[in-house]
Amino acid sequence: MSLSRTAGAALLALALASVAVPASATTDAAAARYVALGDSYASGTGAGSYSDVACTRSRNAYPALWAAANAPASFTFAACGGATIPDMLGDQVDELGDDTTLVSLSIGGNDSGFASTMLSCQYSTQSACERALRTAGEYVVNELPGELDSLYATVRARAPHAEVVVIGYPHLYKEGGLCLGGLSSAKRTAVNQGSDLLNETIAGRAVAAGFAFADGRPAFAGHEICTSDAWISSTNVHPTAEGHASAYLPAFSAAVSAG
């Protein structure tokens, strides 16, 4: 499941430098009608202070923090822990409308089997971890692009005037060295390579849809699991409250400002 880092870097540069956002979609934060869509990385699973326990929607999650800081005209927090693309198409997109001016969106991890892959890597052998990552990688390469295209087209149709920011996933682990009580160095590298493939697929389809892409990897750099100041929980493998405030929120805010 390894990916050419040269090709990955080129695609990431395209995602960051060539985002096409209609001029009409530029967001005035105070006047924004903001809808936050996505999975557990958007809802704030693991960040505590939940306003909705069933969906693990946290007041510490970056969508809620952005809304609290900017006081938009309206804020709808539709992201839900465990969500997949079919879940989003089934109900979350119903929150979008002609008057929506800002959308944040994080999806694809659960569709590619994130939970089962992480279990394999945490509790099974190196070969079992790599097999799970290969299976996930095959889905990411062969099926996810078309599913994202369909989802992004639906989001644009439901919210034709909105600025849409797609949020990527962070690297989960520090690579190299020892990680007491954590994954082996080889497993950590393999998991991060899987994250690269997922992020670069998401970034490419976001750019093709004319959406902005906010990369979670540089935002969390130096604060992965196994670092001395981790912003990702080793227990549930999700960003902590500090991760949302210090990494995701600035990345999302910068993407909104750039739009």
Rank of each mutant, 00 (worst) to 15 (best):
L3V: 15
L3G: 05
R5A: 11
R5V: 14
A10G: 07
A13N: 06
A15P: 03
L16V: 03
V19N: 08
P22S: 02
A23E: 06
A25W: 02
T27R: 12
D28G: 08
D28P: 03
A29M: 14
A30G: 13
A36Y: 14
D39Y: 04
S43M: 11
S43R: 05
G44W: 10
G46C: 08
G46N: 04
A47Q: 03
A47D: 03
Y50K: 13
D52K: 12
C55A: 15
T56H: 15
R57F: 07
R59L: 14
N60R: 04
Y62Q: 05
P63K: 07
P63H: 04
P63Q: 05
L65K: 11
A71T: 11
P72L: 00
P72A: 01
F75N: 02
T76A: 13
T84L: 00
P86M: 00
D87W: 01
L89M: 12
T101V: 12
T101S: 15
S106N: 08
G109I: 03
D111Q: 05
S112G: 12
G113T: 02
Y123C: 11
S124L: 15
S127W: 14
G137C: 02
E138V: 08
Y139V: 05
Y139N: 02
G146N: 10
L148T: 03
L151F: 00
L151S: 09
Y152T: 01
A153H: 09
A157N: 01
P160H: 08
E163G: 10
V165T: 14
I167R: 02
Y169L: 08
P170I: 00
L172Q: 04
G176W: 12
G176L: 03
G176H: 03
C179V: 07
G182C: 01
L183M: 14
S185Y: 05
K187H: 00
A190L: 00
V191W: 08
N192D: 08
G194E: 10
G194K: 06
S195V: 15
T201S: 09
A203V: 04
A203F: 09
G204D: 14
R205S: 06
R205N: 11
F211E: 07
A212T: 07
A214P: 06
A214N: 13
D215E: 09
R217Y: 06
A219R: 10
A221Q: 10
I225N: 02
C226M: 11
C226Y: 13
C226F: 01
S228E: 14
D229L: 09
D229K: 10
A230S: 15
S234N: 15
V237K: 14
P239S: 05
T240F: 10
T240I: 06
Y248A: 07
F252M: 08
S253A: 14
A254F: 02
A255G: 06
